[in-house]
């Protein structure tokens, strides 16, 4: 038997030791932000020491800036600007080919609901203006014939617009592709846990250390509130909504997701979130499903392999793909 209460002292020391090991610490994530492609990009990395992580994140941002230089229609020297000016076929980088091929594939799969050639329509609506306004119906209608059929012909590494009145604008899909490139850079640097968030276009590498990443889905009508959360690893999540960029005219909400068949904002949904393997594909599919509406949009997402999503219809009903039902947590 112990002559002194060593057990009691040992127990108290153990509590102290446990408390020390469980003490609250700041998150070990390294987070950095940059303004790229006209949007705020945040990269978070978990795991490596800060110095290695900082270097990898800088390289990932550089990769995104290279894609901006290739794809931006605001940059005169970009390859998309060059295609939009050219009247003959021009040679482009494999990255541009890959995104154009993806855009054409999803355009076909969605029966034209996604279209990579809305450059003129976007300029006409001009959401960047101080006071955007609804253009005349005749102006909109004049642009629609160019949007029928395939936008470009691809032969080897050469690309040519099939209609001189069509202007490419890969916008969101190029932003998604840039996120995918950034993730590839982080992966090549040996990082196993990271996220890249470009204005809500999210790409995930692994989980958040041991646990999955927790992704909040914005409620389309309740500012600052969540509709749902998802726990994901190694996935891409993109939401298209009518609430981010819009203006009101005569009591109507005019947002930036256009139906290529009418030239006006699509009206059947409030938001669509898509979960799939790459951010570029998620981006294009979220736009396509938004334009198609809850019934056809859900059918499209269900039909494609390795694609899940949730759709909030214009009247607020929520549709979820079968593979996502058990993963989603409603708020």
């Amino acid at each position: 038997m112990l002559k002194r209460p060593l057990a009691l002292i040992a127990a108290l020391l153990l509590i102290l030791l446990l408390s020390w090991s469980l003490r609250p610490r700041a998150a070990s994530d390294v987070s950095r932000t940059a303004l790229i492609m006209g949007t705020l990009v945040e990269i978070k990395g978990v795991g490596l020491d800060d110095k290695d992580m900082e270097g990898a994140i800088s390289d990932a941002f550089d990769a995104m800036r290279r894609e901006e230089a290739r794809f931006s229609t605001r940059i005169e020297t970009s390859q998309i600007s060059a295609i939009n000016r050219a009247i003959t076929a021009i040679e482009v980088d494999p990255e541009v080919l890959a995104v154009l091929q993806l855009g054409q594939r999803i355009s076909r799969q969605s029966e034209g609901a996604f279209h990579p050639g809305l450059g003129r329509l976007l300029k006409l609506w001009n959401f960047e203006a101080v006071s955007p306004r609804v253009p005349a119906l005749s102006e909109v209608n004049a642009l629609l014939p160019a949007l029928i059929g395939e936008p470009v012909a691809i032969s080897g590494s050469a690309v040519k617009r099939l209609n001189p009145d069509l202007q490419l604008d890969l916008g969101g899909i190029a932003k998604g592709y840039a996120v995918d490139r950034a993730l590839a850079v982080l992966r090549a640097a040996g990082i196993e846990s990271a996220s890249v968030n470009a204005g809500g276009d999210i790409g995930l590498l692994g989980g958040h250390a041991e646990r999955p990443w927790k992704i909040g889905i914005q409620h389309p009508r309740k500012t600052g509130q969540l509709l749902a959360t998802l726990e994901l690893r190694d996935r891409a999540v993109v939401t298209s909504g009518d609430y981010e960029r819009f203006f009101l005219q005569d009591g109507m909400r005019y947002h930036h997701v256009f139906d290529p068949r009418t030239g006006f904002p699509a009206r059947a949904c409030q938001s669509v979130s898509v979960v799939t393997a790459t951010v570029a594909e998620a981006d294009a599919l979220a736009t396509a499903a938004f334009v198609l509406g809850p019934i056809k949009g859900l059918a499209l997402l269900e039909r494609l392999p390795d694609v899940e999503g949730l759709i909030v219809s214009a009247t607020g009903e929520v549709e979820v793909t079968s593979g996502l039902k058990d993963q989603i947590r409603w708020r």
Partner: peptide
Amino acid sequence: EGGEYDLLSR
């Protein structure tokens, strides 16, 4: 720490 989510898709 303590947020409901790590990232917000919007």
